[in-house]
Design a protein around this nucleic acid. Structure first.
Lengths: 138, 138
DNA sequence: TTGCGTGCAAAGGTTTTGCATGGCA
DNA sequence: TGCCATGCAAAACCTTTGCACGCAA
């Protein structure tokens, strides 16, 4: 099922190294395509989705379901950031996604598990709210 | 900006009362349309979206961004359930969405606010993971 | 040579929008 | 009558899939 990614081609190498270079900043399939269009090395959108899917399966990249500009969409970020167990805070005002140490959720995770045997996946945690700047504007 | 919903028409009444009747179960625009098709009182999908949007603006209904069967999509639930401050646990295995008292997150909310002035919106909290049944299958 | 990766194009699903019609105050 | 809601249809997005071609081992 989980086919290994072999990074034999220019495209696959380019996509992974781009995501890694973002150092935790999130990317969407569209933003990745735009990046490569800009650099004069366009990559087909299907190729991008196929690689993202594989990278997710191999745990090299993590996938989040986040409110987009129009409709919900998927966002991706590199393994490094995910390994540090950050949770994501998305501001509903300006759309910025901030990171926050996941440790805060550890005991929540544990008590939910004890009470209902539901095992939370720390990697997918996104909380919504208002950042300081946007809260001030209201 | 926030135009009030007046519930003058059959459709608007029907949509709200259907969501309320779900008592916290989630609905998507599609499932709402299917319901009314089944009951012999079809409502156009555009009408459904327009009402959902208004109901969200007025706080009568809350909107969640959740992993769907194909792609991310929006789900809606009535005010009552949201007022009880449940967080949502979505099982990545079977797709079931469970509710859990939000109180567990209170101190997380507070410490994040103290440290970064980010104010979490409890109504939108969705955590992903594995329910007991699906974890057993693995 | 063989298999896998790629790009194009089309399909599928969800959400939004434009516009003419129709219903309610 | 006048405003607003409705429904149809089209458009806009995002994501997935099929297929033929081409690159790499």
């Amino acid at each position: 099922m989980k086919r290994p990614v072999r990074y034999r081609t220019k495209q696959s190498k380019a996509i992974l190294s781009y995501i890694v270079s973002l150092k935790g900043e999130h990317a969407t399939a569209g933003s990745i395509q735009a990046h490569f269009n800009d650099t004069g090395f366009p990559i087909g959108i299907a190729t991008i989705y196929r690689h993202l899917e594989r990278l997710v399966e191999c745990g090299q990249v993590h996938k989040y379901t986040i409110d987009g500009v129009s409709g919900a969409c998927y966002q991706y970020c590199g393994k490094d950031e995910a390994e540090h167990r950050y949770l994501h805070l998305k501001c509903e005002g300006c759309g910025v996604i901030a990171h926050y140490p996941y440790d805060e959720l550890d005991h929540v995770e544990q008590s939910i598990y004890e009470e209902s045997s539901f095992k939370i996946n720390p990697r997918k945690t996104v909380l919504y709210g208002m950042c300081a700047n946007c809260a001030q504007k209201d």
